[in-house]
Design a protein around this nucleic acid. Structure first.
Lengths: 206, 206
DNA sequence: GCAGAAATTGCAACACGTTCTAGTTCGGCG
DNA sequence: CGCCGAACTAGAACGTGTTGCAATTTCTGC
């Protein structure tokens, strides 16, 4: 494999990702059919597989693409709030709402992400990038240093985020439950106003 | 659909689940091939689909079966520890070790669980059962009542458990990381000895 | 024990991810 | 320009989950 792409190759690759994202946005994971992606991108099926070794890798690449866009939009609008906990809640809910604006696309990329295994190191790299963006977003919102367990808290929040997002795209939870669970996790993990903590916790019923 | 099964039907159903579990234990999700399950259970493919509407539903049923067995073994051996936090850590690590004893089977059922959608209400019922077993196990270990945020904590721990288990079966994390993440989450969420808390948190590096 | 209903069987067929092949075009280099 | 190897194309083919169907067996009510 050559390392630098010719211009026509870069165009082809972009067309493929865009075709995949368009199909995903229309009908979710199942609608992203490799033959159809190839057709829309005006590329042969074999070429598609030369660029992306599997449907999941393609979708995870699309996710990375999308995440970079999303990151900019979230970063431009710093989360309001007087305490770290308030700001973290706010930024997570902002992210949820952003994903909710393209639910099928979200479902498709989350599905791809969670069916990805380590036998695809390149796709793992994309996944790691997504995680690190999430980490940065939360860390910025916590701003900043005097919480010694910061890393551990962020890591746990990342895990909760993954679980809640999975539940959402699988239909196990609706956007409201997603928000409740996220806020409860943040209030339990990040020091902040006691009354907000109580309220968030009270919203969880067995 | 008749509601009560004849004896031969119950036997057939059990044979099917056992065949699926055996195949899963040998080679994980991909090795559970519906034609092969049918052959091992000495049942026609169509019959298999009469009992389980999809491969994932079959595997989730197998998971419920397995969970009930596991539950007994975990319940028989109450987790040792002087504080709620110690006991919750202990019970989660016990569960992890139990799953680690059949890694391919674990991977298969977790894969099935996480690709399950709400358009299969019956399978969701099984999934809910699995979650409730986990909930009870943790609640028992916490023993007991005077932590007001109990429900919220358990819920968040369930989400962390799901995320960590997914990471494990996907190969994103090894058993050691799984244990570290689980303990860190418990120490952050459940009141307990400060020194154990510090140690657990310190093990998390970005 | 028997008639009709329901369940089971064996097998073909379909869909879609993935792989393979044979021929064609592209891009760089003498 | 002309050549070579890499990239691309069209399309066939394969594997596995899933569905459909006609023939057969088992169950249930009488």
């Amino acid at each position: 494999m050559r390392t630098t792409l010719t211009e026509r190759q870069a165009l082809r690759r972009d067309r493929v990702i865009e075709a995949a994202m368009a199909l995903a946005a229309e009908g979710g994971y199942d609608s992203v059919q490799m033959r159809e992606v190839a057709a829309r991108a005006e590329v042969a099926l074999g070429t598609l597989y030369r660029y992306f070794s599997s449907k999941d890798q393609l979708l995870v690449a699309a996710m990375a693409h999308w995440t970079r866009q999303l990151e900019g939009r979230l970063a431009a609008r710093p989360a309001p709030g007087d305490t770290p906990a308030d700001r973290v809640v706010e930024v997570l809910l902002q992210a949820s709402r952003a994903l909710e604006r393209a639910p099928e696309l979200t479902a498709a990329v989350v599905t791809a992400l969670s069916s990805m295994t380590t036998d695809d190191p390149e796709a793992l790299e994309f996944a790691r990038e997504v995680y690190s963006v999430m980490h940065d977003i939360i860390e910025t919102a916590m701003a900043d240093g005097d919480i010694p367990e910061r890393h551990a808290v962020i890591r746990v929040l990342g895990e909760v985020w993954f679980a809640v997002l999975t539940a959402r795209v699988r239909g196990w939870a609706d956007p409201g439950e997603m928000a409740i669970d996220l806020e409860a996790a943040v209030r339990l993990l990040v020091p902040g106003p006691a009354d907000a903590r109580e309220r968030a916790i009270a919203r969880i019923r067995a």
